[in-house]
């Protein structure tokens, strides 16, 4: 049976991890490759690298990072952040990334999803959607949730599926950083209206939240950053806990 996935997310700036991490056994807490190897050994099912650098050299730096990760880490990983062109994706996949995640560029030019899916296959195209509720309606936001659009979450989710997205990474800006749990109602609705896997993101605070998002939220995977980086939740304990709660995980 297919298992539910646990995905640590690493924010990357100029080739280094951004958020402080609390791993005592790390020689270099800013080294994404070393952190990635630890997560892989602990049983993470996948990794996401989100590049937030805005320098001229970012392309080269990111490509080198992807090569380093691919050479040393034996689980799949996704790269996202600022990807807007077919050529970017080509370089990242050739360097060894398994999937790429696109966000704002897809909102600005939805045909990009079709182009990427037809060139590389939909299995490697993740569309990331950031949304928050405005007057009770889930609205897609850009620029890390700062800029509202006039696009409704559920309409957009259907559209990206039709255009060839292989997976949706949904971040609720209402839940992100709260540690109060994932946006399970919206997640469950997403799973009902599209037939591609949904990755839940935003709001993880304790182990129960993961069980909740897999059961109530019907999510296929759950992504989190700080709870893993600060060792508030260990991946082996989390997976054991999920198993005890009847969730099918890789152990």
């Amino acid at each position: 049976m297919l298992t539910k996935r646990i995905i640590p997310c690493l924010d990357i700036k100029n080739g280094r991890t951004v958020k402080g991490v609390n791993f005592v056994n790390l020689r270099d807490a800013g080294d994404p490759v070393e952190l990635a190897k630890i997560y892989a050994d602990e049983g993470a099912d996948e990794l996401v690298f989100l590049d937030i650098s805005a320098t001229e050299e970012r392309r080269k730096t990111l490509q080198k990072l992807v090569l380093d990760v691919a050479s040393q880490v034996d689980i799949p990983f996704t790269v996202g952040g600022g990807i807007s062109a077919v050529a970017d994706v080509d370089r990242l996949l050739k360097a060894g990334a398994d999937k790429v995640s696109i966000n704002s560029a897809a909102v600005k030019r939805p045909e990009l999803i079709n182009e990427l899916a037809s060139k590389f296959g939909n299995q490697c195209i993740v569309v990331a959607i950031d949304a928050k509720q405005i007057d009770g309606e889930w609205i897609v936001h850009l620029v890390g949730g700062k800029m509202p659009t006039d696009i409704k979450l559920f309409d957009w989710a259907k559209e990206v599926e039709q255009r060839g997205a292989g997976e949706i990474l949904f971040t609720s800006m209402d839940n992100d950083g709260t540690k109060d749990g994932f946006a399970n109602e919206a997640l469950a609705k997403l799973s009902e209206i599209v037939n591609i896997p949904i990755i839940a993101s935003g709001g993880a605070g304790n182990m129960q939240h993961f069980t909740d998002t897999f059961v109530a939220g019907k999510a296929d995977a759950a992504l989190a950053a700080s709870v893993f980086h600060f060792k508030e939740i260990g991946i082996p304990e989390l997976k054991q806990n999920l198993k005890e709660n009847g969730i099918n995980v890789r152990l």
């Binding site: 049976m1 297919l2 298992t3 996935r5 939909n122 299995q123 292989g166 591609i196 896997p197 296929d220």
Partner: peptide, 13 residues
């Protein structure tokens, strides 16, 4: 079939 999410993505036995 459409009974399951397609593509299958993840770890299976």
């Amino acid at each position: 079939s459409e009974n399951v999410k397609v593509p299958q993505i993840g770890w299976n036995t």
